[in-house]
Design a binder for these strands. Sequence first.
DNA 1: GGCCCATCTAAGAAGACTCTCATCGGCCGC
DNA 2: GCGGCCGATGAGAGTCTTCTTAGATGGGCC
Lengths: 219, 219
Amino acid sequence: MKSILVVEDEQRISAFISKGLTAAGFRPQIAADGITGRDLALTGDFDLVVLDIGLPGLDGFSVLKQLRAQRPELPVLVLTARDNPDDTIYALESGAVDYMIKPFRFAELLARVRLRLKESPQEQEVTELVRDEVRIDLLKRQAWVGGSLVELSARELSLAEILLRNCGNVLSREQLLSHVWGFDFDPGSNVVDVYIGYLRKKLGTDFVTTVRGFGYRVD
Amino acid sequence: MKSILVVEDEQRISAFISKGLTAAGFRPQIAADGITGRDLALTGDFDLVVLDIGLPGLDGFSVLKQLRAQRPELPVLVLTARDNPDDTIYALESGAVDYMIKPFRFAELLARVRLRLKESPQEQEVTELVRDEVRIDLLKRQAWVGGSLVELSARELSLAEILLRNCGNVLSREQLLSHVWGFDFDPGSNVVDVYIGYLRKKLGTDFVTTVRGFGYRVD
DNA sequence: GGCCCATCTAAGAAGACTCTCATCGGCCGC
DNA sequence: GCGGCCGATGAGAGTCTTCTTAGATGGGCC
């Protein structure tokens, strides 16, 4: 199992990332400021670092530079709140392997983490998720139910994917909302319910189970 | 450079695949029937096989089985004209690593070929294409022009991607049409022109050069 | 049973996307 | 210069996607 260091001061965001990474099968650890982050990263216990640029204590750029200097092989994925291309370009030039601009959808962060941690050709990438009669092709963006083809929209696919990847576990509306819609999406909305309805209509009523008071689950 | 064997009897389709693979930096070779295909595949000169199921002479399934038996490590990507889930499931069970249903967009075939040939962690995947002021992020599905963010639709992104990946080469309307829209798309349409116009509006007039009588090129 | 609350669903508005059609403009050969 | 052809572009139709709203449904507790 891969260890990931999350250097992020906003508790809301670090918790969000941490939970998501855990659900995806990674072992995350949080550092709330630059100095702690740098020191932890340099221990060598981590396979990847998710680094916020806007940090208290020690600026993210400085952390990035020190990591580059001392552990050039450690992949760093930079988060920046400022929608400023100069920042991101500077980050990439300083050695970040990738970057994301807040607010981001968790699914995208996960895709990037997976991409950067991929290493052995043995562990073939998952391009299909199967559960009983339902088969979802992530590359084709299509689903098969029994023998017939079903087209899924981008949102529907994204929602189905996270449910299937966490097969057996209940996912709360908030989790689904932040994973699929982004962590700053209006929490009062009932989009999740509506899209669960769409999935049921397309993939069969019993594709998702409602767990009253908690959320949804695919068994 | 990777060698790819294309076993396909329809000349129109094999030529289409072959050209596209060449443009993408692969070395393709065509076999027009099952027996030739099987014999070539067994020489061991190829890194991947694209195999049509509906073949004259020797059925695609038989070819697949023989390849599995004698070269289990050789990745085979199956093409099937029949929109029949049984066929594809059977193909996968027989050991195909992946499948595509005709008609397909070439871009998708390419994505699958790349995925299956990927092997060393060294050659990091391309997630960004850059050319002068224009930067395109394939994962984010966004573009940056100078310092500002531009949203691209799925079609626009796909078109921009193939143009950028073939930087310096002229691509004909037919090539673009088959790559982005699929090889059976109405050849009389001027969608390509229209979408080139959209790209110019979003990415700058001089992003693409028109080569009168031939097609378009990104320098 | 009756009530409350969580969940489901139908309907629809707004907007994005894709493509066609028709017209306009300019390049090229004569 | 002129005509014809190739490409550019504007308008718009049809469809799909996404999200909100509001009312219907139904579970669980009293």
